[in-house]
Nucleic acid binder design. Structure first.
Lengths: 121, 121
DNA sequence: CGCATACTGAACCATACGGTTCAGTGTCTA
DNA sequence: TAGACACTGAACCGTATGGTTCAGTATGCG
């Protein structure tokens, strides 16, 4: 198998690939909230929001605790370090391949300028 | 609408939330490749790989060019700056809420140590 | 007790996803 | 020109996703 079996990344990224869920994270960043509160805020049924919270919890991005009849959600223990690390490594790779190209383009621009040609867009 | 309609983020993250696709990106980071080459490398049909490449291309993470009968794929113009920025802002938010908690935990550890209790884990 | 609140779970629905097969189309190359 | 090669597109398949409704269960409160 070539594909690096990083299930973590899969679940984290999948959890983030939904604007409602990202919204929930931002919201919980401001203050803890019950499922009901979140459902209200995002104009959704309780059940629907519960699923989203479930996905986020599965990904470790949210933790919940039920006391009495209300389940309180808060930002979870899992930081996005892994994701950030992947992005960073990708960035590095990108630069490695295109840093050179950027340089070439920069040189071309300079040349065009000094040749008196107008710069294309 | 409360949910921040950042379609970019949605498509970028969704494109990344698949290990095959991340593998393709890493591969293309090393060298450009044809669809066939990628399909071989990831043990998949041409058609299957073409779909993945399509998703990556849609997200701007890959660009392709067909010359003759072979379509060559290369790392695309879109850097993951947006994604990185979101992650960073989330990180910041996380720290804001939990930096304090970290401090409390650290203090507790210190206290336990000085109390002569053995440190849990 | 009796009612409202807050969640839970099952079932359902439409659509998307990851993958396949199969039947093309277009391009090399001998 | 014939055949191999590289891709393309449509159709299909099983499963997942994002959402709903509806029918519970458990808790709080007057």
């Amino acid at each position: 198998m070539v594909q690096y079996a990083r299930a973590h990344l899969d679940t984290s990224l999948a959890a983030l690939a939904d604007s409602t869920r990202r919204g929930v994270l931002e919201q919980l960043g401001r203050e803890d909230a019950s499922i009901t509160a979140l459902a209200d805020r995002f104009h959704m049924t309780l059940t629907g929001m519960k699923k989203h919270v479930g996905v986020l919890e599965q990904a470790g991005l949210v933790v919940t605790e039920k006391v009495g009849r209300v389940r309180t959600c808060r930002i979870g223990a899992r930081r996005l370090d892994e994701v950030a690390a992947w992005i960073a490594s990708y960035h590095q790779l990108w630069d490695a391949r295109f840093g050179e190209l950027d340089q070439v383009i920069e040189e071309l621009k300079q040349k065009e300028k000094s040749d008196g040609h107008h710069q294309p867009e």
